[in-house]
């Protein structure tokens, strides 16, 4: 359910922009300045994933955060909550702190790309709200993430 809203928005808002750009022609466009080529559908907010016990950003995480930054810049009506999550291993207090570090590492990167810090909030759920059940490396890898929620 959580992912529904951002997903819908990510589809609807860019497509409206696209339609607006097509129909109105030379009229002024409301949202971001008209891009030179015909606008493409902007990819939506996506989650980023972390290595074990790390809050450092992996290469693919950086790509995703750039995408997220663009989305946030394009969707000025939304603020974004970044939830830090951990896998079930280790101890829960440390994981709560590690989740906080993960959420903040993602936030810091996006702020460095020019997004206003006031539009980003962070929270940690530590190991309390895993996405994937089970005690496998796949499940753990899914659960070490920063989850982006448009609000």
């Amino acid at each position: 359910m959580k992912t529904m809203k951002p997903l819908l928005r990510s589809l609807i808002i860019p497509s409206m922009l696209f339609l607006g750009a097509c129909c109105c022609g030379k009229e002024t466009v409301v949202a971001p300045p008209p891009p030179p080529p015909p606008p493409v559908v902007l990819p939506g907010l996506g989650d980023v994933f972390y290595d074990f016990d790390k809050s450092d950003l992996r290469a693919e995480a950086i790509e995703q955060l750039k995408t997220n930054a663009n989305w946030i810049q394009a969707n000025t009506a939304s603020n974004v909550l970044i939830e830090g999550h951990c896998d079930e291993r280790g101890t829960s207090e440390y994981n709560l702190a590690l989740g906080d570090r993960r959420a903040n590492s993602a936030k810091d990167y996006i702020v460095n790309l020019g997004v206003a810090p006031a539009r980003l909030k962070t929270v940690s759920y530590g190991e309390e709200k895993p996405f994937a059940a089970g005690s496998t490396e796949e499940a753990w890898a899914q659960n070490r993430r920063a989850h982006f929620v448009a609000q």
Partner: peptide, 9 residues
């Protein structure tokens, strides 16, 4: 207690 007031616990 730990507080993460500035993004660092």
């Amino acid at each position: 207690a730990t507080l993460s007031l500035n993004g660092d616990p």
